[in-house]
Design a protein around this nucleic acid. Structure first.
Length: 240
DNA sequence: TAGGCCATCTGGTCCT
DNA sequence: AGGACCAGATGGCCTA
């Protein structure tokens, strides 16, 4: 934490108020530990300093200034952490196309992004269970997408999900184009600022809008009659 | 110009 | 006593 504080203070982008921040003493600056000398108690009553009102006022002011300084640094460290979170979110991959996420957007996006990744992992686990049991892949494929079980809108969403989950599952994130025929490469596959996912030059919206209900991958599995059941939206994982 | 977002200040509370 | 944390207040900046 102390390390971070110094990082923040030394940040190039630091506004002028950083200059006001108190600089903690480095270990070398710290006073060497003086040998402890046991002092004899000279007063029987607790010492109460006699301070004039002006002294008290001055004391209060310096305390307030120091508290403000700490609070400023605390908020800067919080913002720094948020910034680090921003840069690992997919939306940050295309800064030229997106504005910086606000604080609340960053938190919601992160929450939802983690949720999607978790669901994807669960889905992959289920796929392996199906394979191990010798059952047909329940996930939407080109074959079952064309089988008439889905509406056009559903097919659209399904293909996006397949792309998305494959993209996430692939180590180099290059499989999205191969799954449903997108002519994209890894550089073009991304999560849009609004939470939609797709390729640079196409896509409606993979329904991952931060403020909208969510697509649930686990709902893509076939029912007992081997008919793909599909429920495109569920309640948003993040309470909006 | 209203509204959203942000940084900062401030006083209160809790903890060490 | 002093630091950390929190929430309310305030003012500046930006955008629709």
């Amino acid at each position: 934490m102390a390390e971070f504080s110094s990082q923040v203070r030394s940040a190039e982008s630091s506004p002028s108020h950083f200059a006001k921040a108190t600089t903690p003493m480095s270990p070398t600056e710290l006073p060497s530990k003086a040998p402890t000398i046991k002092k004899t108690k000279r007063y029987s009553r607790p010492r109460v300093r006699c301070r004039s009102p002006t002294v008290i006022q001055r004391l209060k002011k310096t305390r307030r200034v120091k508290a403000n300084d700490r609070e400023r640094n605390r908020m800067h460290s919080l913002n720094h952490a948020l910034e680090k979170l921003r840069v690992v979110l997919p939306a940050s991959s295309f800064p030229e196309e997106s504005t910086k996420l606000t604080k609340i957007e960053t938190l919601r996006f992160a929450y939802n992004y983690i949720w999607v990744l978790t669901e994807t992992l669960k889905m992959n686990g289920k796929m392996q269970e199906y394979e191990a049991a010798g059952l047909p892949n329940p996930l939407p494929t080109h074959h079952n997408l064309a089988s008439g079980h889905f509406t056009d809108a559903e097919v659209k969403n399904e293909s996006h999900l397949v792309d998305y989950s494959s993209w996430i599952a692939s180590p180099d994130n290059t499989t999205a184009s191969s799954v449903s025929g997108f002519e994209s490469n890894s550089d073009e596959s991304f999560m849009n600022l609004d939470g939609s996912f797709g390729c640079a030059d196409q896509l409606g919206a993979f329904p991952m809008d931060m403020n909208q209900p969510f697509f649930q991958p686990s709902n893509l599995f076939c029912d007992e009659n081997n008919v793909p059941s599909f429920q495109p939206y569920i309640s948003a994982p993040f309470p909006m």
